[in-house]
């Protein structure tokens, strides 16, 4: 968990000012404008790249229906955490300024293809989408509001795992969110989990894998332990497609790989099947 910050795990994306984008999966180069025009999808290999939470919301919620909730819930520096590179507080405040978000998940009510829903979208740009106490708190509150208002719950995950700067209470968010999800299901409401690139560590090992259906996008990275950790443990090279969306579907942990252009319609169709 927390290996999102590891240098060698970072995708090889050029500095912000560069004109070229490089696909982290097939390494093909293209102009940034091409990458953006193609909705962050690689024209060569169909890798579905990362979107900001706001981009994802715009592509998922019906126009004008998204009303953000729990924005007041943010990070907590209860450990006064600092490491060799500085204070957690400084880092997370910089992230808040950069992304404009209060936490690694944006939560709100909306309609999806006409169906009322509670929608949460994680933003990998916010501390690697890590699961902090604020993230867990927003999810737990969303579950409770979904139950009160009879709304299906939809969460798009993108995360490297738990946020170690928040210590044990970060780990406890895995249990808290999973317990809250259990109550959504007990109330007879569906939970659709969309695991986008990447969803790993403590987030894959809690709410993200608990969908009544788990769906993902082409070539997304999904797993628990990091590839390098596993290779160092078993002293073997892992196959190239290990922990890919396609690999997980083959092994039975993903219901469907859905292209980004079809995602909203797919979710709406499922909600219609289930009478929501």
């Amino acid at each position: 968990m927390g290996w999102f910050e590891r240098k060698d795990e970072k995708p090889k994306i050029p500095p912000a000012k560069a004109l070229w984008a490089i696909c982290p999966k097939c390494y093909s180069h293209m102009e940034k404008s091409v990458w953006k025009a193609n909705n962050a999808i690689c024209p060569k290999c169909n890798y579905h790249g990362r979107l900001t939470a706001r981009e994802r919301i715009a592509q998922t919620a019906d126009a004008g229906t998204f009303a953000e909730v729990f924005r007041e819930v943010s990070y907590s520096d209860h450990l006064a955490f600092h490491d060799a590179t500085g204070d957690y507080k400084t880092k997370v405040e910089a992230t808040i300024a950069k992304t404009g978000e209060s936490e690694s998940i944006v939560m709100g009510t909306c309609k999806i293809g006409g169906h009322a829903a509670m929608l949460g979208v994680m933003d990998f740009a916010f501390m690697g989408g890590s699961l902090g106490t604020g993230t867990g708190e927003k999810i737990a509150r969303a579950c409770e509001q979904a139950i009160a208002e009879r709304r299906p719950l939809v969460i798009f995950s993108a995360s490297g795992g738990a946020r170690m700067h928040e210590g044990i209470l970060s780990l406890m968010q895995m249990a808290k969110t999973s317990a809250a999800i259990a109550r959504v299901k007990e109330a007879g409401l569906p939970f659709i989990s969309v695991l986008t690139d990447p969803t790993t560590g403590g987030v894959s090992a809690s709410y993200a894998m608990l969908g009544d259906i788990n769906i993902t996008e082409p070539r997304a990275l999904i797993g628990f332990a990091g590839r390098r950790v596993i290779e160092n443990t078993i002293h073997q090279k892992l196959p190239a497609d290990f922990q890919s969306a396609e690999y997980l579907e083959k092994h039975g942990f993903i219901d469907r790989i859905v292209e980004r252009k079809d995602m909203k319609a797919f979710i709406a169709k499922m909600l219609a099947f289930w009478h929501f």
């Binding site: 317990a179 090992a205 950790v229 596993i230 922990q243």
Partner: peptide
């Protein structure tokens, strides 16, 4: 920690932990 292995991932280490958290909470 949970075992970081190839088969562990293929058999759903993440799903098993997640399910366990959900299960014991109820």
């Amino acid at each position: 920690g949970a075992y970081p292995g190839r088969e562990a991932e293929e058999r759903g280490q993440a799903e098993a932990i997640a399910k366990s958290l959900e299960f014991f909470s109820t």
